[in-house]
Amino acid sequence: MNTNIDMSNKEYSDYVEKKATNSPLLKNIFWAFLVGGIICMIGQAITDVFLKFGFPKEQASTYTTIILIFLGAFLTSINLYSKLGKFAGAGSVIPITGFSNSVVAPAIEFKTEGYILGLGANMFKIAGPVLVYGVTSSIIVGFFYWLIKIFL
């Protein structure tokens, strides 16, 4: 019996890929679209209510953001958001509620290591990179916007 597997790393990787079950792409896309869409509709509904009560548009959308962040954090704390994320995938990760989830989840998890080095240091473990590159790219875009405005 041969004790070595007669394959190169590349051959083995290709073979494994062929054998492995792929993610159910269509199903995942469908649920992501549905749940992501519903979250956005809820956001729109909240904005509309504020507008109806006479708030200016900018204020209404700020309040909506705050409410959605609260909802995401609340659902995370009662262990519902992770269940939603299981089938909604990107649908619940991309909206602002997902951002809230990605901050609250490590905050809960790392509480055992104390408020400073645990919760404080790890809270932005997942959201941190989003902030770093979000802020960086907005500065770059802003710079070009400013340049274009000078010449036009």
């Binding site: 492995a20 079950t21 792929n22 993610s23 159910p24 995942n28 995370t76 704390s77 262990n79 958001y81 992770s82 269940k83 939603l84 994320g85 299981k86 089938f87 909604a88 995938g89 619940s92 990760v93 997902g98 989830n101 990605s102 609250v104 989840a105 490590p106 809960i108 998890e109 790392f110 473990k125 997942i126």
Partner: peptide
């Protein structure tokens, strides 16, 4: 928590 994501984080697992 050592190897992957926090428990309450809503994400999907790979089929493998």
């Amino acid at each position: 928590r050592q190897f992957r994501m926090p428990l309450e984080h809503g994400n999907q697992q790979s089929p493998t």
